[in-house]
Amino acid sequence: MFLILVAFGVCAQDYPESYMCFKTNTEMKIDGLLSQEEWGKAKWSNKFVDIEGDAKPKPTYKTRVKMLWDEDYFYIAAELEEPHIWAKLKQRDTVIFYDNDFEVFIDPQGDNHNYYEFEVNALNTIWDLLIAKPYRDGAPAINAWDIKGMKSAVKVYGTLNDPSDKDKKWCIEMAFPWQVLKECAYQGRKPKSGEQWRVNFSRVNWDIEIVDGKYQKKINPDTGKAYPEHNWVWSPQGVIAMHQPETWGYVEFSDQAVGEKSMSPKKDLDYPTKKELIRLYYLEKKMFKKYGKYFDKITSDHEISIETTSRQFLISIKGESGKNWYINQESKIWSE
């Protein structure tokens, strides 16, 4: 038995971004225009920030999203301001963030496991992935998986791949079928009114320059390589890493028709508990790397219980809601 006193952990924000997703009773046309009355009733999210949060400057260009849902789809609309819109990749399931792109991350159960990633560029070339657990826990992305029945469209306000003029923005409209998303959801179903899923959005934006009348990524003369991309997100991660589902935003689904009245999402009373579990997870990983074992005694401001074996651990904390929350060595979080 060991006692460790530490000040170690990852915290992106006091509380993630949240959004109330209202229902639409109108058939949505996926064309990228966002011109339907239902979209006009839905509120825009807060503008995106740097992935590291307040530690970095605000994004150069504005990005924001809206959300709706009905019995068949989860709808997402995105607006990305950009004076020079370009895209090259045309092959589905290639690495889309080598272009400027927009990305959607959905964790239906909020347990850090079995979540979805979707990327799209201005050519409407998509890359969809199913991820069993975060990369930090050793799981590969499942690239062969496809979101069957998913619909997307892009509208460019300007001229794509034309450096001779200035563009305004590009908009994306997406419809994710519940028939697919429910596979990783609680009880294998779409959300009920009042339930929340963990969701985040990312925009990858590269610095570009015009060479011989064409766009190319701006090259750092000291390295001969392109400057690193910018990562702008809805809910900040605290580090340059999107695959931390515990720091994604909260989307609450409401049966209330969009535009009828204003409502705010519920606050997750147990979010501080989940943050502490993640801090302890990272600490256990650090100690295992250094000492080759997990520890069953760690100092915490919470009353905790830890069970360990030579290769596994299970930490539990009672949350403000009265639920007992758990985390294991693969960063899976759940309650009983």
Rank of each mutant, 00 (worst) to 15 (best):
N121E: 02
N121F: 02
A122W: 04
A122D: 07
L123C: 07
T125A: 03
W127L: 15
W127F: 11
L129G: 12
L130H: 15
K133S: 09
K133N: 02
K133A: 05
P134R: 12
P134F: 10
Y135S: 08
G138A: 07
G138L: 01
G138E: 05
G138S: 07
P140K: 00
I142R: 12
W145A: 06
D146N: 11
D146E: 14
G149P: 12
G149H: 08
M150I: 04
K151Y: 04
V154P: 01
V154S: 00
V154K: 03
V156W: 07
V156L: 03
Y157F: 14
Y157W: 10
L160H: 00
L160M: 06
S164K: 09
S164C: 07
D165S: 15
D167V: 01
K168E: 13
K168D: 13
K169R: 15
C171G: 05
E173W: 05
M174H: 01
P177H: 13
P177L: 11
V180I: 13
V180F: 01
K182H: 02
E183H: 07
C184I: 09
Q187D: 15
Q187P: 04
Q187F: 06
Q187G: 02
G188I: 08
K190N: 07
P191D: 10
S193W: 04
E195I: 08
Q196K: 11
Q196A: 11
W197G: 01
R198N: 11
S202W: 01
S202M: 04
R203E: 04
W206I: 02
D207Q: 15
K214N: 13
K217H: 10
K218T: 14
I219P: 05
P221L: 10
T223G: 11
P228M: 06
P228L: 04
E229S: 12
N231M: 13
W232A: 05
